[in-house]
Amino acid sequence: MTTVSTAQAGTAPKPAPPLLEVDDLVVHFEGRRRQQPIRAVDGVSLGIGRGETLGLIGESGSGKSTIGRAVLGLLRPKAGAVRFEGEDPWTQPGRRRRELRRRMQVVFQDPHEALDPRMTVEQSVAEPLLMTGVRRPERLRRAADLLERVGLGDAHRYRRPHELSGGQKQRVNIARALASDPDLIVCDESVSALDVSIQAEILNLLVDLQDERGLSYLFISHDISVVAHLSHRVTVLYLGMVMESGAVGAVVDRPAHPYTRALLAAQPRALPSYLRTERREVLRGDIPSPAAPPSGCRFRTRCPFARDRCAQEIPAVRELEPGRTVACHFAEQL
């Protein structure tokens, strides 16, 4: 007994591998003939632990949705890997690949588009179970339980999508994602199309489900407040590259990258005039096209602190403090 415990104490606790690892991911989209491919994701690494929410923050062209699709296996990376519990589904035989994919589900932005208009709510939720060999009575029982859990009672079971509101449809999509008993759900702008009062309900539901089931979320949204609300950690992306990542509190309260600072400053604040402090600095210019990104640091063309070095050298993603990374040559001096 004693020897065992000593041995345990002696070896450093081996950190459990994250549930999901994205390692130096590169995704290109071929452009029209003779055009350069669009480098939608260009060397992004991130990890999500069990029961954790990682939020992806970024504007158009940041690659956040593309990362979500690559994670789900809907896109094949040009380089790098997506590993689920250490296994890359693309390198696994079909059966194993499908099993890994089953454990990653998705809830998209448009709750209507994601549902088959001819199916009842119950059929939509039970459908994913068809592949698992579960018998029909059991499938329907599980579908009913899931619908109950997402707040849709028996009255909704036999309705079709057109008879439901946007919020109800998104509940069906969440129940459908849960039907496969996933470990990870990719939420790609899942609450963006909903009115704020409905959005609040769905966000509360997502938090509850995560706490109950130990789910992990890859949460993608253009709305920084929504991402910050739901995430434990966040990664800030710009034109396919990581600018900064870390615990949500650290990133939001002490942004290290000029782009993160600008994003937070641009956030509209529901505050009366006398609580609005200094005039916020507004970022100039447009987001460059991902087909022709700037040399060096991709943010330099809009960065108020850019210097010569920024045009020549792509800043490495480096650790600022444990669990906190930034990709800016001058992060410490800002």
Binding site: D195, V196, I198, Q199, A200, V207, Q267
Partner: peptide
């Protein structure tokens, strides 16, 4: 008031949002 407390803000970190029950 309900609308104001339904919207997540940078400081609301996973705390319960005030969802207005029902729908318009």
């Amino acid at each position: 008031s309900g609308l104001m407390w339904a919207v997540p803000r940078l400081g609301t970190r996973r705390q319960r949002l005030h969802a207005i029950r029902g729908r318009v």
